[in-house]
Design a protein around this nucleic acid. Structure first.
Length: 510
RNA sequence: GGCCCCUUCGUCUAGAGGCCUAGGACACCGGCUUUUCAUGCCGGCAACACGGGUUCGACUCCCGUAGGGGUCACCA
């Protein structure tokens, strides 16, 4: 796209957390704005009060910020807006605060003969649809003739009936010029007079969206392909109102590996089956210990590619390379394995400071007491667990170092294999090594390494012969970071204590 | 069902008529490294949905078929 200074928008409905599909849409819009030196507008589409979920605006803003997709205009914008509200020059940016604007435009359409009052109730409409379905014919709303007058509409309202406003569709086909899909034409007989103002006086999505895009001077609309069939309606409204039509680009839809649409439903279903629910919302990935860098990078490659063999690139590099033309037409499946791989690589790649920052966020968002650990300790944990895939792996691997000695659970399998096998060779190793450890000075990884190496030579053991028993003694299982570092981190006192505790349990059983 | 969109390895994709013996990444399989678990390194398996055209030549262009998806609300 050669256009410069694109004004784009991301327009979520406040119905919960930000969905990954929405995040991809937000990202592409953000990318286009940054790439063209334009503005990224965040607009909240909350015209349906019945669907409103409390807190969801805050949640969406938090998710956007976590991803690093800052918006220039919109609620709590930090784009340096100089208007009173600090949101931007074309606010308000929540549709719930723009009712008068919509009603004014609806009135204009009525006055100009482009729209009319319609008196059918939802029940009547549903019955007509049902009738058509039973007769196996296509239902299409038929424009009343003559049209209800303003007086009739008022009389209906006075009688307690809700009155809607519909837009008159012309009798010519409408062609969408899509920057990804090309020309898409919808024949005139496929278009019907649709509702632009609901019975409660609020605009429908179509009207609000078009009016806002025009008033907010949006030049490019990037949205999901599920909106493709809405676009002719939007173009019709634009024409009736005398607005310019922005560029449109409909992004391919993101699916599950199973081929179904990714939805919150998946979480409920998994829960019902007693499975771990899959991450669907951005917040889910945050809680599961993914890095924003990895999620963003992975998501950017859903429907778009760098054009060469490079895949792992920063947001800045993505911005440099991104173009709407480079977006593919086909839908994409969300491959969690690949995301996991990306996360592993990003965790190994970002700076220590950044990794620490993300780790702390992970711990906090999960309400973990480990969040209170000294920074140096958290850094050490991260360093010892290098190669981890997501943050929970770190806890799994080294979390035992931060619990009470009495909380260690000894895994039966590990005890049998590492301690009891060969006439209790593991116990024997522990019994002997604990003596060396008790007097070792200083208690550092290198000193421990020297001591254990010496110990192995003296006892004709391989390192594993003592490292594994120590692992079981300290953690209850067979997995930990390098044994010397682990001992250092756990500390002498607790190391000795856990070894003795292990031996005691062993002798009880014998 | 009507309309619309889509179709390269299992998955994400590169490919814009000869560069293709179709490239990369994830997954998978095998090997190496290793005190455990990971990580890392090396190697391997694996695709142009099908059928017609057009062309000296089609993964690339056209038509059809099949399959997948979207949409048909006073929800966005």
């Amino acid at each position: 796209m050669s256009a410069s200074g694109c004004r784009v928008r991301f327009a979520p409905s406040p119905t919960g957390y930000l969905h990954v599909g929405g995040a991809r849409t937000a990202l592409f819009n953000w990318l286009l704005a940054r790439r063209s030196g334009g503005r990224f507008v965040l607009r909240i589409e909350d015209t349906d009060r019945s669907r409103h979920v409390s807190d969801s605006l805050e949640k969406i803003l938090a998710d956007m910020r976590w991803l690093g997709l800052e918006w220039d205009e919109g609620p709590e914008a930090d784009g340096g807006a100089d208007d009173a509200a600090g949101e931007g020059d074309f606010g308000p940016y929540c549709q719930s605060e723009r009712l008068a604007i919509y009603q004014e435009h609806v009135q204009r359409l009525i006055d100009s003969g482009h729209a009319y009052y319609a008196l059918e109730t939802p029940e009547e409409l549903a019955a007509m649809r049902e009738q058509a379905r039973a007769a196996k014919t296509d239902y299409k709303y038929r424009r009343p003739d003559p049209l209800p007058t303003a007086e009739q509409a008022q009389a209906a309202r006075d009688a307690g009936r809700a009155v809607v406003v519909r837009l008159k569709m012309g009798d010519t086909a409408i062609t969408v010029m899509d920057d990804i899909l090309g020309e898409v034409t919808l024949a005139a007989d496929q278009l019907e007079d649709f509702v632009i103002q609901k019975g409660d006086g609020w605009p429908t999505y179509h009207l609000a969206c078009v009016v806002d895009d025009a008033l907010m001077k949006i030049t490019h609309v990037l949205r999901g392909q599920e909106h493709l069939m809405n676009t002719p309606k939007h173009i019709a409204i634009q024409r009736a109102l005398g607005f310019d039509t922005p560029h449109y680009a409909h992004l391919p839809i993101i699916f599950n590996m199973s081929g179904s649409k990714m939805s919150k439903r998946d979480k409920e279903k998994a829960l019902k089956r007693g499975e771990v629910p899959p991450e669907i919302d951005v917040h889910d990935f945050r809680v599961s210990g993914y890095l924003p860098e990895a999620l963003l990078n992975f998501i950017s490659l859903l429907g778009w590619s760098t054009g060469d063999d490079t895949e792992q690139i920063t947001l800045d590099e993505t911005t440099e390379r991104f173009s709407v033309e480079g977006v593919g037409k086909g839908s994409a499946k969300f491959d969690r394995d690949k995301l996991l791989s990306f996360n592993t690589d990003w965790a190994a790649k970002v700076s220590e400071d950044r990794l620490l920052e993300c780790f702390v966020d992970y711990l906090q968002v999960n309400g973990s007491p480990l969040a209170e650990l000294p920074e140096a300790t958290l850094r050490r944990m991260l360093e010892l667990c290098k190669g981890f895939r997501t943050f929970p792996d770190v806890i799994t691997k080294i979390g035992f170092a931060f619990v009470d000695d009495s909380a260690i659970e000894y895994q039966e399998k590990a005890v049998r294999k590492v301690l009891e096998k060969n006439d209790g060779a593991g116990y024997a190793a522990l019994r002997n090594v604990v003596i060396c450890l008790e007097s070792l000075e200083p208690w550092t990884a290198s000193a421990i390494e020297a001591e254990l190496t010496k110990f192995c030579e003296a006892n004709d053991l391989k390192l594993g012969g003592v490292a594994q028993p120590l692992r079981v003694a300290l953690s209850g299982g067979t997995v930990s970071p390098a044994i010397f570092d682990t001992l250092e981190l756990v500390g002498r006192e607790r190391t000795i204590n856990r070894i003795k505790q292990t031996m005691m349990q062993g002798s009880e059983q014998q």
